[in-house]
Every structure is written in C-alpha cells, then in structure tokens.
Design a protein around this nucleic acid. Structure first.
Lengths: 200, 200
DNA sequence: CCTACCGATCGGTAGG
DNA sequence: CCTACCGATCGGTAGG
C-alpha cells in the first residue's frame, strides 16, 4: 500500500464518519477537505466525482461492518449462538458510533430511499446482502434443530432489523436510557418464539 | 383565513412533501419557490429564517398525522381495537406517502438525531408525544382487561415503533413486496403475546 | 408579493 | 498534492 493509498484510506475513514452525520448528499468536499487539512481540489483528485466518493464511502463502511459484525460471528457455533453474536455485534456497531452520526446505513437508508441512482443501488445491494446473511444463519439454526422446523426464517431476519431500527431511533433521537434494554428484550422474545419446543 | 394564510398553508403543504424527500436541511428555499412558482424572496417573506420554516414544516406534518392517524382511532373502542386502529392508520400514513419521500418523521429522525438545535428539539417533542399516545392506549387496554395485567406497556409501545421503522425500510428502500405482510405479522405476534390468557 | 443584490459555498476543471 | 478559477446556487437582506 503506497502513500497515496494511505491518504485515500484516511480520507475515506473520515468521510464515512462525516457522511453518517451530514448524510451522503449533505457531505461536502469543502467540509471534508477542511477537516483533513487538504485543499478541496487536492482531495477531489482522489475521486472523479462526488458520486464516486459516495460509492466508495458505502463500500468502505460495508467492509468495516463485515469486519466488526459478521466476521467475529463466524467464530461462534452455527445456529442460535451465531445469530446471537450477530445481534450483539450489530448492537455494538450502532452503539460505538456515538462519536459520529449513528449507523451510516440507517442514515443513508432514510436519505436515499427516494433518490434513484447508482448510490441508492449500491446501498440496496449491501443491505440485501446483510439480510441474506442473517437469513442463512437462521436457516442453519433450523437445520441444526435449535429452531422450530417450521420457523419463518425470512420473518425473523426481517424482525431483527425492526428491533435494530427501533433501537437506533430510541437511543439516538429520544436518548432513551432504556433503549438497549428494550432492544435486548425484544430480541429475546423473538428468539424465544423461534426456539424448538416439545411440540415441534 | 385570509389570502395570505392560504398561500402560506399551500407553501407548507408542499414544503412537507419536499422535505420528506430532500430532508429538512436538504430542502432549499430556491427549489421550493420554483415548484410553487414564486420568487425566492417572496416565499421567504412568510418565514423569518430557514429554521423557522423547518419548525413550521414539522408542526404542519404533526397536525396532519394527528388528523390522519390519531383522531380516527379515537372512534374505535378503547383498548385492543384502538391500538389496532392506530397501527392501521400508521401503516396507511406511511404507505400513502409513496408519492413523496416517505414518512417525514422517520426521514427527519435519521437526519436530525445528531444535529442539536431547536428543530431537533421540536421533532423529539412530537415523537415523545406520539410514544405517550401509544402507551396510554395500551394502558387502557390493560385497565379494560383485554391485555395481560402485567403487560410491559412501554415495551409494547416501543416494539410497535420498531415494526413501523422496519416496514418503512423494507417497503421503501428494499421494495420488498412482502413488507406490509411482514409488518402485519410482526404486530399480530406482539398483540398475541400481550393479550389476556387464562393464566393471567 | 417583486427585483436586485450580498458574501459564502457548492461541485468541478485547468494547469502545473 | 497545489493555486486559481468557472458558473450555479445557497440563505438572507434592502427597498419597494
């Protein structure tokens, strides 16, 4: 990795943080350059356009999410333990972003859901992949006999997301001190309903 | 209501719609004026500042939400029927916003959660009120004996929000055709767990 | 409600 | 990586 790559990576790291606060559109080259003590054009020379910067911000964040949340979970036993690990990692991911503007994917989802284009497309791609990852882990839990045989895996993968979106909202907007406790309880209930019982 | 008020109301209605797409910050006076075929300064004269406009956008949307979701629910019998009515109205509120940029409160929540100031404060106020409304309706359901005596009303009010946030995300960002079905199933499960049973 | 204007900032380019 | 620059647009004001 050459010097230019180091600069570019440090630009992107800061850009992810700034975009999570200002949004991918609200982020400006000038503001980013100022924080990094570069000239606007000096910074811009690493990217062909603002759209290219936005796409690389999403890719950079996606890589970080995989490292922070998904990869560690693969060290947990498949099935129940692994979906719990995904949940814990996800919670920590959102919690640790206190310093910046919260989960950039949640911010971007609200910002881009009605703005067609390549940036939205990339976000959708990343989020669909993340949904599939959850679903596969849940399906394995069914195969392993830890979850009900007739569990609606799509529904559980979907409901986990609702718990997380609600957590992000309650903790970050409302500053509810019980937000994490509520999220844990909601998830525990989801798991309880999904576990194998005597009857099925 | 004089002519000036009519103009102002039509400005605000359009502004709510535009802000739900562009965000409260992303909204610009110029763009709004163009859509309404007014001069920028002519439009601006109705508001002292962009911040004042943002505050009035939130108030206008809050009034519309009360009319569309809360008031109709008061015609349903208290308790279970009323909380179901709130859910249905909320779902319709989000669904009908297909023409614009989705629920402005969800968009604004993601946009403002890390931007301190009067606009964020107003949004938090509105959202806390909406939370209390849900909680009171649920508490009445407990008092009426339709819900479990030991129901965690705060938790249910909180979990309903997660279902809605997840619905907004799945339907608007992922375009999941099953989004509504999933939201209904998730809410039905929440209600099922909350209903009075033989044992309590 | 308008025209006309302010300084600041935007994304992007030229040229080195 | 820089200076210097482009046209466009921003929020806001003056004055009518």
């Amino acid at each position: 990795m050459g010097k230019g790559d180091i600069t570019k990576q440090s630009i992107l790291d800061r850009a992810v943080s700034l975009a999570s606060v200002m949004g991918l559109d609200g982020l400006t080259i000038g503001r980013l350059a100022e924080e990094l003590k570069l000239s606007r054009s000096g910074l811009f020379s690493h990217f062909r356009s603002k759209e290219a910067l936005q796409l690389q911000i999403l890719d950079n964040a996606s890589g970080a999410f995989t490292e922070a949340v998904i990869r560690p979970a693969l060290h947990s036993p498949r099935g129940l333990a692994r979906i719990q690990s995904l949940f814990e990692g996800w919670l920590t991911w959102i919690k640790n972003d206190k310093t910046s503007g919260g989960c950039i994917f949640i911010t971007a989802a609200a910002e881009l859901d009605d703005k067609p284009g390549p940036v939205r497309d990339r976000l959708v791609e990343i989020q669909k992949e993340w949904f599939q990852t959850r679903r596969r882990v849940i399906e394995t839990g069914v195969a392993e006999g830890e979850f009900k045989r007739d569990l609606d895996c799509d529904q559980l993968a979907h409901d986990m997301n609702g718990v997380m979106m609600g957590y992000h909202y309650s903790s970050r907007l409302l500053n509810d001190p019980k937000a994490e406790q509520r999220a844990r309880k909601a998830f525990a209930t989801l798991l309880q309903l999904s576990k194998k019982t005597k009857t099925n």
